[in-house]
Design a binder for these strands. Sequence first.
DNA 1: CGCTTTTCCATAAGCCGACTATATAACTTG
DNA 2: CAAGTTATATAGTCGGCTTATGGAAAAGCG
Lengths: 141, 141
Amino acid sequence: MEKRRQLIVDLVAQTQRLTRLAAQATGNSTPASAWRLLAILETEGPQRVGTLASAVRVSQPALTQLASHLCEQGLVTKGPDPTDARAAILTLTGEGATAIADWRAEIGGALSPYFASLNDEDWSHLAATVSLLSSLDREPS
Amino acid sequence: MEKRRQLIVDLVAQTQRLTRLAAQATGNSTPASAWRLLAILETEGPQRVGTLASAVRVSQPALTQLASHLCEQGLVTKGPDPTDARAAILTLTGEGATAIADWRAEIGGALSPYFASLNDEDWSHLAATVSLLSSLDREPS
DNA sequence: CGCTTTTCCATAAGCCGACTATATAACTTG
DNA sequence: CAAGTTATATAGTCGGCTTATGGAAAAGCG
């Protein structure tokens, strides 16, 4: 289906635009990878550095560095893994959870004007798209 | 509508993930801003640097630098504006158009496995979402 | 058990894209 | 034409991400 492949391409192009729009509209300079990391810790619970690196889709050193920044800010804590002395486990703090909530409010507020003209049908398409995107990157088939 | 605001947030989160997935799946290091620039030139025709900077959503110096890179690669050309000697006008070259086409093929090929399990209804939601996203950043209302 | 190999994370060095501030040149206005 | 404004270019800097590498712990194997 060549048409579907084209649709994927268009979707990616639009997501890049929206990502950029969100970054610019909020003015928040916190990198997207940080938000992905916090969101993963929130939904999946404490995780190892290596696991997080692949989940966030950055290199392991990048995640180590990101984690140290977030530790300094008090948004996550790094602790030992009782089952493996090499490993480090990152845990979301209460402040980290608050930071995510704040960011969500900020982005929602900044972007909702752009979505003001959507009708109910548009919203249902969006909802469906969000839910299917949420579950599509577990292993390409 | 608090639910809708939440949906926007989730959409942004998913688009960030997809953007990152696309970057990683293709291995193509060309920055997203370059693709946005080429795509704009393709659909809108030759444009001034300043106009492109805001369309691509980067600062003017960033676009100047990006343009010079793309010129070196032969993907765009920079020419004078006959109506304003200060201005520079960027134009997509044939090679530039080819580069976009190639990239689209690459991203479509790299990502389509992830979308293999979608049904017809999913695809129609995606199509609707793409089309509404395409037309949402002309001025927040 | 001891030794090798593998795994996990941290550190080092460097690249590249983006930003702010500033300079230069050209258009516009009074 | 002088003064102010606008369009782009340049300089300088910062931050995130990458590859390459190091060191320590676990796992595999004789």
